[in-house]
């Protein structure tokens, strides 16, 4: 079997199919944490930046990337961690934002809070806490339908 070295674009396409382990409706590329893909000789180098420094998903993400690439026949993989520039929710793709909203998680906004309740779309919402079920989320509540919901907070 002859395995050709896949193009960088092809690799990006594969990575766009790897789901985030905690919010599986969005992919790692939607999240904006894959910073670079490059060949260094026979080795494929993937540069990843963590979302939060203590996020327990980080090691799973690295494992998932490696697994996805190995399944497609890439043998030599090097994962590089890049801290700076620090990850920001500005790097979430437009598609990623839409997927979050459909899933029931209000996407981040520079204004510092959700535009509306992701369930009933009412703009009458209030913050319960800056912190939520995962490091990247805050807890909000809708005053119209009374449901609590997650907000993907800006960082």
């Amino acid at each position: 079997m002859v395995i050709e070295r896949p193009s960088i674009d092809t690799v990006w396409g594969w990575l766009s199919e790897v789901p985030d382990p905690e919010i599986p409706v969005i992919s790692l590329t939607d999240l904006g944490i894959v910073r670079d893909v490059a060949w260094a000789g026979d080795t494929l180098e993937v540069t990843v930046t963590p979302t939060y420094s203590g996020c327990p998903a980080t090691t799973i993400i690295n494992l998932d990337i490696e697994t996805a690439l190995r399944e497609r026949g890439v043998e030599n993989i090097r994962l590089k961690r890049q801290l700076s520039p620090a990850w920001t929710t500005d790097w979430l793709t437009a598609e990623g934002r839409e997927k979050l909203e459909r899933y029931g998680i209000a996407p981040p906004r520079p204004a510092g809070g959700p535009e509306h309740c992701p369930l009933c779309k009412s703009p009458d919402v209030e913050r319960i806490s800056q912190f939520g079920s995962t490091p990247c989320k805050a807890q909000w509540r809708c005053r119209a339908c009374l449901e609590p919901f997650d907000y993907f907070k800006c960082i």
Binding site: P50, Y52, I128, S129, P135
Partner: peptide
């Protein structure tokens, strides 16, 4: 519960920073 979650998240951030 909200305070519990907030404190646990704060602790998690701090432990993550410790690793760095």
């Amino acid at each position: 519960l909200e305070e519990d979650i907030a404190l646990a998240n704060t602790a998690l951030d701090l432990i993550g920073q410790t690793q760095l």
